[in-house]
Amino acid sequence: MILFIHSVNVLLPLIYGVALGMYAWHFFQNTSKIGEYASRALLTAIVLHLVYLVSQGVHFRIFPVATIFASMSMFALNISVIYLIIERISKDRKTGIFFLIIIFCFQLCSSMLITFESPTNSILSNSMFGIHTTLTLFGVSALAISALYSIMYLMLAKEIKRHRFGLIYDGLPALETLENMSRYATGAGIIFLGAGLFTGHLWSYKVLGYFFKYDVKIIASDVAWFFYLFGWILVKIRHLHGLKMSRVAIGGFLAFIIILFVANFVDTTFHSFI
């Protein structure tokens, strides 16, 4: 089993890389056949990724997001699944390249740095932990997707403003579509992340007896979530559209990632109490 897990760990970034290459080809050359192959490659990667995570769970008897690098892999999978669903619904593969860049980078980083060890802390085997991490990662993935759509929005808006009708103009959907997708993704991100953080607190209360345990990552995540919520309300109240909303979404996600990185730098464990 461990040999299989190690092999798939090497294989996954390769398949995501191949899918990225094909999505890039499809974007630049507009070859629909290549787009179909890219989609199939991504589906293959997702299936393999699921098998890989289940195998880890079975072998190590742990929900496979116990470390930051395991979480990165789960994050890559979440974005892949969400993107593939969007692709199947919208029947548009031109935005694939933007998502696959993130997916590939995260999986590559995870595959290179992950260490496979049996859990030393029984808390990580708790089912509540699984729900907490799944919801949180889904939330973060949705926020990342929102930021990606916002980046696409800004790119396309710039092209239209400058009267340039190149690859970006031909390849991306309408500004309003990108704005809506970003808006929905942000909403979903805030809900999932909020639910993830809340279950985390609940879990902390059940296991440790504290609803709020002092931990730099918990504080950082809670603060970031509140800022996101504040930003969302601001966008709603002030009727922010297009450019402003996109800037808020990108800025929010960047700030969130920076906060998490700093928090991770301060405390390299999953949480200070695990």
């Binding site: 396309l156 239209i160 103009y169 959907p173 309408a174 500004l175 309003e176 579509t177 809506n180």
Partner: peptide, 9 residues
């Protein structure tokens, strides 16, 4: 065409 590239609804 420009309308289609900016708006969706």
């Amino acid at each position: 065409d420009l309308t289609r590239k900016i708006y969706a609804n």
